[in-house]
């Protein structure tokens, strides 16, 4: 899988309240509606600025805080193709894989706001076209590759009726 788009840079400890605020998420299961408010408390115009295929680029501990799965879903429904960060909080990381949002651990210090980048998940590398350099991707654990390849955890369950990592 290869994605290309523009980087939208954020700092460390981006929590799930910032990704989608509690004041919206309790009201609806319409993820397209929630997507309009994605990252709103950090950048009120984010949804207007982001183009289909773009990337959210964070620092360390991306997705900390609450377990709300609306966070990766709101990002996905805003047509963001992947989230890149130095590290992820564990519940967000699981939720993203389960729902099919690619999450990429890499050295995001080598990416600046507005950089044009290409993420090649199969090759495990990011090409920063603006800077002309490449950044290696930390591989996903095997169990998560299995879930992703099955099309998310729901599809994995449809296929096997439960967890099957044998």
């Amino acid at each position: 899988m290869e994605f290309s788009g523009k980087a939208h840079k954020f700092g460390n400890d981006v929590n799930t309240d910032y990704i989608i605020s509690g004041k919206y998420k309790f009201k609806t299961l319409d993820m397209k509606e929630l997507a309009k408010h994605v990252m709103e408390d950090l950048d009120p115009d984010f949804y207007e600025k982001v183009s289909s295929g773009d990337f959210i680029v964070g620092g360390s501990n991306f997705g900390c805080g609450s377990s709300r799965e609306q966070a990766p879903l709101a990002i996905k429904y805003a047509d963001v193709s992947a989230v890149l960060a130095k590290s992820f909080a564990r519940i967000f990381y699981r939720n993203a894989i389960n729902t099919g949002l690619p999450v990429v651990e890499c050295d995001t210090d080598q990416i600046d706001q507005g950089d044009e980048i290409v993420v090649d998940l199969a090759a495990g590398v990011i090409n920063n076209k603006t800077k002309g350099n490449t950044i290696p991707i930390k591989p996903l654990p095997a169990v998560m590759i299995k879930i992703l390849n099955d099309g998310g955890l729901a599809a994995h369950f449809r296929k096997f009726g439960g967890f099957n990592f044998g």
Binding site: S67, I91, N98, L153, F157, G162
Partner: peptide, 20 residues
């Protein structure tokens, strides 16, 4: 420990969860 909604659904159905 805390999980998201899809993991919760998997737990509801199977009575199991995968962990590192």
């Amino acid at each position: 420990t805390g999980v998201g909604s899809t993991d919760l659904a998997g737990g509801l159905i199977s009575g199991q969860m995968w962990f590192k």
